[in-house]
Simulated assay, not measured.
Amino acid sequence: MINKVIISFRILLLAITFFCFFPSSIFSQEQTIKDSQRPIDDMVSKIKTHVDPEFVYEYAQTKFVPPNGKTLLIMGQTVESITEYQNHFSNEKAPGGWSAYWAITEFKGVTERHKNDTGSSQNHQMLVDKFPNTVIQSAMWMVGKWGITENATLGYYDKVIEKYAAWAKSLNRPIYLRIGYEFDGPHNELEPKQYKRIYKRIVDILRNKGVNNIAFVWHSYASKPFKDYKLSDWYPGDEYVDWVAISVFGHAYNSHFGSYCDRVLEFAKQHKKPVMIAESNPVNGIEKSNLNVWDDWFVNYFSFIYNKNIKAVSFINENWQNLNIPGIQEWQDARLQNNEKISEAWFMETDKDYYLKQSPQLFELLGYKE
């Protein structure tokens, strides 16, 4: 009898020790099993597709806007990540557009491949050659540091803009040009008066060169602004802006995207401009066997697109740990291909007719004419 008690006590001690030292592995295994059994359509059904009628309004002074009940799907953002995305999802229909970057200071990454300090490459022309019947979302880098805005104001980079104008004019497709993207971000240190002056100068050069296939995008950081300037301080005027854009990174981990985001959307509505999510990604990462990011980020993200009547959305399929970009060292690997069920849910949602993808009819739907 005593031996049986001792054996039972030892078994109890072993059980307590095991659960004390290995509880997380047990629970994580249970969660993995539950996630693997979760139907994809149940995941997608959590997205709220209601459209707030306040954000359905007539647009003025704009270009290349999808028709009612449609939004343009764009993917990005580097040669490497786009190529990897295409190789991994070769059986999926291509998005309606691709994003790329260049700088006001030099004509690199437009007509030829250019590898920059981040360790990634840009090549606008590759996107043109490789993906017919798609648009280009082109981001022009410009900051208030290193004398860049002073030089731009003096016309030092006019020749760069003129080269870009000649290239853009040669293309038979819409281009969405983000001039000084995230203009109000503290990381860019752009003074509003200088920014507006340069923005107008760029638009005037492009228009004077007869470039008609560019929509001009005014892209806000949609977070706490540089020196707490008012949003309107950076606005170059209705006649110079076709689209208003925002970035969505940490915003979507909360169903309410924040007061700064609200201000941009309200500003766009007041000025009768369509809204684009110009950059977006769940920067805390997409893990191989964890579906929490779907409920924590993607559901809020897609619900926001519907609710606020967002007319174009650009998703960055990126492993941020591979990029040498100051200020984002905490960002993680957030590529769709990391998690099979996340990517399946992504494509189940974006395969809906609501999203405009690559097609011979795309340019006509956007109101683009040669």
Rank of each mutant, 00 (worst) to 15 (best):
E112Q: 13
S259E: 14
I82H: 00
P236C: 10
K159Q: 07
T350F: 11
Y181G: 14
V244C: 12
T49Q: 11
I16Y: 03
V275Q: 04
N254M: 06
M276Y: 14
K341H: 07
K230A: 15
L336A: 01
P95C: 06
P67G: 14
S220I: 12
Y59L: 07
I305D: 02
V283D: 05
T149R: 05
V110K: 00
S24V: 14
L127G: 05
Q77Y: 10
Y253A: 00
S120E: 15
L171M: 11
D129S: 12
P236E: 10
I198T: 13
Y181T: 13
F21S: 11
H187N: 13
V51G: 05
A166Y: 04
I7N: 12
I179N: 02
E58S: 12
L72S: 11
D238K: 03
G147S: 10
V241G: 01
E30R: 00
P274S: 04
H88A: 08
I148Q: 14
H50G: 11
I205F: 02
L13A: 11
S81T: 15
K193R: 14
I40H: 03
T149M: 15
S359Q: 02
F216T: 11
K273V: 11
W331H: 07
I205T: 08
W102N: 01
A166H: 08
C20R: 08
F216Q: 05
I246D: 08
D295L: 12
F18Q: 01
K169Y: 02
D238P: 00
S303F: 01
S121T: 08
F302H: 06
E344M: 09
S45F: 07
Q37F: 05
Y221W: 13
L13N: 06
Y57L: 02
K196P: 03
M43A: 08
I205L: 06
V283T: 14
A345C: 09
D158T: 14
T118V: 12
F9Y: 10
V44R: 06
H251L: 06
A94L: 12
I11Q: 11
Y368W: 02
D42Q: 13
F107H: 07
P53W: 00
H114K: 09
A139N: 14
P274T: 03
P95Y: 00
T111K: 12
V248W: 04
E112N: 13
